[in-house]
Amino acid sequence: MTSRDTAMYRVEIEVNGERRTVRVRAADILLYTLRDHLGLTGSKSGCDNGDCGTCTILVDGLPMKSCLMLTVEADGKQITTIEGLTNSPVQHAFVRNQAFQCGYCTSGFIVNCEGLRNMQPHADEETIRLWLESNICRCMSYEEIRNAVKDVINQKS
């Protein structure tokens, strides 16, 4: 290994309201930094190429697939994971509408829907449908998930 291969970078991020510092390699992906270095395992690895959305987090309030973001790119950013959304109205709506089956995709959907709720609080049916296309549910709970999102959007309106 060359010294270039072992170079470590100091990255400061705010995760769920707490300032955290991690030392990572340039190629380290944020998903694995959250899981392996910070113990935040709610974001899941489903595809590692941005297709499924199980690893969705909020970066400065915007939904982002953490498998597509290098940890060094998160330096100075505010990160919210599913663990930071405890008692979220979106979580309650998912429970009320039974918007989950196996639960694997649920954290990514909840985080994504929290981003929608914050960015487009009066989203119409078409906006909700388009927004949800970025995540995959293999158990086919899409109807229940849409109902949960509409439930939350209607509460906020």
Rank of each mutant, 00 (worst) to 15 (best):
Met1Leu: 07
Met1Tyr: 10
Thr2Gly: 12
Thr2Ile: 13
Ser3Leu: 15
Ser3Ile: 11
Asp5Tyr: 10
Thr6Ala: 09
Ala7Val: 13
Tyr9Gln: 14
Tyr9Ala: 10
Arg10Tyr: 10
Arg10Ser: 11
Ile13Thr: 13
Val15Ser: 01
Gly17Asp: 09
Gly17Cys: 10
Glu18Phe: 12
Glu18Thr: 15
Arg19Glu: 14
Arg19Leu: 15
Arg20Pro: 08
Arg20Cys: 02
Thr21Tyr: 02
Thr21Asp: 02
Val22Thr: 09
Val24Asn: 05
Arg25Thr: 04
Arg25Leu: 04
Ala26Phe: 11
Asp28Lys: 09
Ile29Pro: 03
Ile29Cys: 03
Leu30Ala: 08
Leu31Ile: 10
Leu31Tyr: 01
Thr33Lys: 00
Arg35Ile: 06
Arg35Lys: 07
His37Pro: 10
His37Thr: 15
Gly39Lys: 08
Leu40Gln: 07
Leu40Ile: 11
Leu40Lys: 03
Lys44Trp: 01
Cys47Leu: 07
Cys47Phe: 05
Asp48His: 05
Asp48Ile: 08
Gly50His: 02
Asp51Gly: 04
Cys52Val: 00
Gly53His: 02
Cys55Thr: 03
Cys55Leu: 05
Val59Leu: 04
Gly61Phe: 05
Gly61Leu: 07
Leu62Arg: 14
Pro63Gly: 01
Ser66Arg: 03
Cys67Ser: 05
Cys67Ile: 13
Leu68Arg: 10
Leu68Trp: 10
Met69Val: 12
Met69Glu: 02
Met69Phe: 03
Leu70Glu: 06
Val72Gln: 06
Glu73Thr: 11
Lys77Met: 12
Thr80Gly: 05
Ile82Gln: 01
Gly84Glu: 11
Thr86Trp: 11
Asn87His: 14
Asn87Ser: 11
Val90Lys: 02
Val90Met: 10
His92Asn: 05
Val95Ala: 04
Arg96Phe: 07
Asn97Gln: 11
Gln98Ser: 12
Ala99Met: 10
Gln101Lys: 13
Cys102Pro: 11
Cys105Asn: 05
Thr106Gly: 09
Thr106Gln: 07
Thr106Cys: 12
Thr106Asn: 03
Ser107Ala: 09
Ser107Thr: 09
Ser107Lys: 02
Gly108Ile: 07
Gly108Val: 06
Ile110Trp: 01
Ile110Leu: 06
Val111Leu: 06
Val111Lys: 06
Cys113Asp: 09
Glu114Ala: 08
Gly115Gln: 05
Leu116Trp: 05
Arg117Asp: 01
Asn118Ser: 12
Asn118Trp: 14
Asn118Val: 14
Met119Ile: 15
Ala123Val: 12
Asp124Tyr: 08
Asp124Arg: 07
Glu126Gly: 15
Ile128Arg: 02
Ile128His: 03
Arg129Asn: 10
Leu130Cys: 13
Leu130Phe: 14
Trp131Asn: 08
Leu132Ile: 06
Glu133Leu: 12
Ser134Cys: 04
Asn135Trp: 00
Ile136Glu: 00
Ile136Cys: 00
Ile136Asp: 00
Cys137His: 00
Cys137Arg: 00
Cys137Ile: 04
Arg138His: 03
Arg138Ile: 05
Arg138Cys: 07
Cys139Glu: 02
Met140Thr: 15
Ser141Ala: 14
Ser141Lys: 03
Ser141Met: 08
Glu143Lys: 10
Glu144Gly: 01
Glu144Val: 02
Ile145Arg: 01
Ile145Pro: 00
Arg146Val: 14
Ala148Ser: 04
Val149Gly: 02
Val152Asp: 04
Ile153Glu: 03
Ile153Ser: 06
Asn154Cys: 11
Lys156Arg: 14
Lys156Cys: 11
Lys156Trp: 12
Lys156Thr: 14
Ser157Leu: 15
Ser157Gln: 15
Ser157Gly: 15
